[in-house]
Simulated assay, not measured.
Amino acid sequence: MAMKEGGGGGGGTLSEIYQNSKRLLIKTRDAVERLERLEFSSPGMDSPELSYSIKRDISQIQSFCVDMDRLWRSIGSKPQRDLWKRKVEQVAEEVDSLKESLDKHTQRIQNRMKEAKERAELLERSNGESHTVLRIYDDERVAMQSARNSSIMLEDAYSTGVAILSKYAEQRDLLKRVQRKTLDVLNTTTLSNSVLKLIERRHRVDKWIAYTGMTITVIVVYAFWRWTH
């Protein structure tokens, strides 16, 4: 069977278009492998020119597949038609696999770029939050120091008050002791006065007894003298 059916991709025959698509598949597969090696050897690295070239070649192969799909359907012999159908489907599967690999690579690069952007934003936000946290920490530290100073002042005031009250208590005890001694002195003085008064009364009684005894003695002596004479 002559393969002179018209088609796209430069108007070649089905066989010519197929051979062109196979050569382009090999080239595109090698390019995808280079792109993946570049990505995994240096994570985050990309080659936009190589990616664009691969994408362009994939579009060309897909265009070949469209032409070949139209051409094999026009083959009269069923065995030949079935054969070309499988060949074209194989090319289509291979180009879809390459396109999927390219899409995954592109998605990984986009994800890494997104992650890098998010990390940068997070870092920038963290730096801003760090300044805020440091400012809050400084404010808290100043407040805690002020509270500590106030606590020290209150403790000093309390200690001073306790000391004053202790002095007052000591003075009160001293006054009480003085008062007790004064009362003791007063009581002693009162007791002494009572004793003196008692002694004085006793002295007067003794004087009266003495005077009475002397008088009685004089009377007795005088009476005896008169009786004897």
Results as ranks from 00 to 15, higher is better:
A116K: 13
K167F: 04
S192R: 09
L24C: 01
L35C: 07
P48D: 08
L71V: 03
K114I: 12
S21T: 13
L122N: 14
M3I: 05
V91E: 02
Y222C: 08
D156I: 15
E49G: 07
E39H: 12
L134H: 09
N127P: 01
R201S: 08
L35T: 04
A163S: 10
T13S: 14
K104R: 13
E129C: 07
V32H: 03
A143W: 00
M153S: 13
K4V: 10
E118W: 07
K87E: 06
W208L: 13
T188L: 12
F224W: 10
L196M: 13
T160K: 15
E155D: 12
K167W: 02
G76S: 10
S101E: 08
S150Q: 15
A163R: 09
M144Q: 12
H131D: 14
Y168A: 14
Y158I: 05
P79Y: 00
R73P: 05
S150Y: 09
G6M: 14
D206H: 02
R37K: 15
E140N: 15
R172M: 09
E89P: 02
L191H: 07
R148A: 08
T228P: 06
L191M: 09
A31I: 00
K87Q: 01
M214R: 09
G76C: 04
T28S: 04
Y168M: 15
Q62K: 00
T13F: 01
M3C: 07
M1S: 12
R204G: 00
G76Q: 06
R112I: 14
T182S: 10
A223F: 15
A116T: 04
K85F: 08
T28K: 03
T189K: 11
G161D: 03
E94I: 01
G10T: 02
E170M: 11
H203N: 13
Y222I: 13
M144C: 08
V162M: 02
R141Q: 10
L165W: 04
E118T: 10
S151R: 13
A157R: 12
K104G: 08
V91A: 05
T215Q: 06
L50K: 01
S101R: 12
S42N: 14
R37C: 09
S130C: 10
T28Q: 01
